[in-house]
Design a protein around this nucleic acid. Sequence first.
DNA 1: CGTCGTATTGAATGGGTTCAAGTAGCGTGG
DNA 2: CCACGCTACTTGAACCCATTCAATACGACG
Lengths: 252, 252
Amino acid sequence: MLYQPSGAQMLARKLSGIGNLLPEDEAAIAALDMTVMNVAAGHLIAEEGSSPRHCCVIIAGLACRYKILVDGKRQIMSFHTPGDFPDFYSLHVDVMDHSLAAATPCQLGLVPHSIFRQWVRRHPHLANLLWRDTLIDGSMFREWIVNVGRRPGPRRICHLLCELAVRLENVGLAEAGRIPFPLTQSDLSDAVGLSVVHVNRVLQDLKSQNIVLFHNKEAVIADWPKLRAMAQFDGAYLHLKDGGRQLRHFKI
Amino acid sequence: MLYQPSGAQMLARKLSGIGNLLPEDEAAIAALDMTVMNVAAGHLIAEEGSSPRHCCVIIAGLACRYKILVDGKRQIMSFHTPGDFPDFYSLHVDVMDHSLAAATPCQLGLVPHSIFRQWVRRHPHLANLLWRDTLIDGSMFREWIVNVGRRPGPRRICHLLCELAVRLENVGLAEAGRIPFPLTQSDLSDAVGLSVVHVNRVLQDLKSQNIVLFHNKEAVIADWPKLRAMAQFDGAYLHLKDGGRQLRHFKI
DNA sequence: CGTCGTATTGAATGGGTTCAAGTAGCGTGG
DNA sequence: CCACGCTACTTGAACCCATTCAATACGACG
């Protein structure tokens, strides 16, 4: 692909997916000067226990939050797509209580805390939208709890696929039912709280039923209605503008 | 008990547990005029799909957030103790994506959105503290994900008990290792994602090992170090002021 | 062309569920 | 004061979804 959107553009897309940007807000975002940085797959972006002095905006790639337990088990608590700014919370909470890492090679834009603090002071409407974003983050965590707490294995995986599809389409990264899907089965298993072996068997089942196919770090959602039904997916918790009606393939 | 703290007092306690209140903030809170209301156990406070026009502060009792799945299963995503204002997020997110209910008889203080909006405009320091609170809420959700996703049954239950103990003590509602514990085993099971039967067996095990005892809607934490060890509990994610060092019994 | 991470497969095991009864505790009304 | 009925709690036994272990296959990349 020749054209690659900038960090500011991705941020604007993301925010206008969950609310309205005033011209003033758009100007502030467009004027945003971020330090671009590349991170290899698996590398830490912000470590548990550290106190970042900047926030990162994901420009390309997929990041994830996780905690490692004392017995070595890992639980992934969220994935983050381009346009997300997953360590924004370090603005108000001093110490990271979990790690943030690149699940795949990532391009990041670093923004000093001071700039966001300025935004909050000077642009109350934008500040509210940022706050809204952190609250929607909370919504996604809650749904994630439901996923690992009360859904059987296959449904968990389908639900995660649905969420990723909708979120990626919302920032313009899905076309014709095809989404980038660079995660390993091990990542998936740590996200849904299952073993790798079991994830493998479920995925094969999805393939054999021709619901989702995986090729070349992409997922082809061959039968969205069926996937959605298997997941019992209702995307209301994503709080997209107009209930996500602007989405073309993955209506929620 | 003859003395019962007011809603404003509980709110102040809660907020000063996670940050510092300026005299100006304390004055605003003290001047807060809330409509007090009693809710019976099990009754809804805010229903999924609704759009509240006020936020509630819990004055007494225990509330919980949950979702009900199409097959009737319930997942509880958080419990809320006095001082919490669990539907604050309705200020920035129009539609409730989950239900909020009284897990036990509750006394609530209702505060119109307009008042909180005024606070946010006029008291930036307090606004930041409120934002911080919503972010800490997110932290608790993340830990909850870890709990249901990667911990074996007994550890899940111990972890939940630890969290409740620390949070209750933080608002002055625990004494001498004894906390109010009005939840049913069914509530517990929906919180940790296990069956009631299994929760029952785990609790009996805890009793027989003399770690936690349950009497008369109270839990007596007989062996905090052991409970904490069984849970592998680290309360850093609660982001209490001074790392929770002001707590007397349930050091985190 | 070898090597390391990732994916796949089978078989045995187990933590937790489900089903089905039975018991205890408690408020309510006769 | 006891009978009643409801809810919460308890117990045992059979079952199953998912894990674990162990081995093999694939595949991307230097």
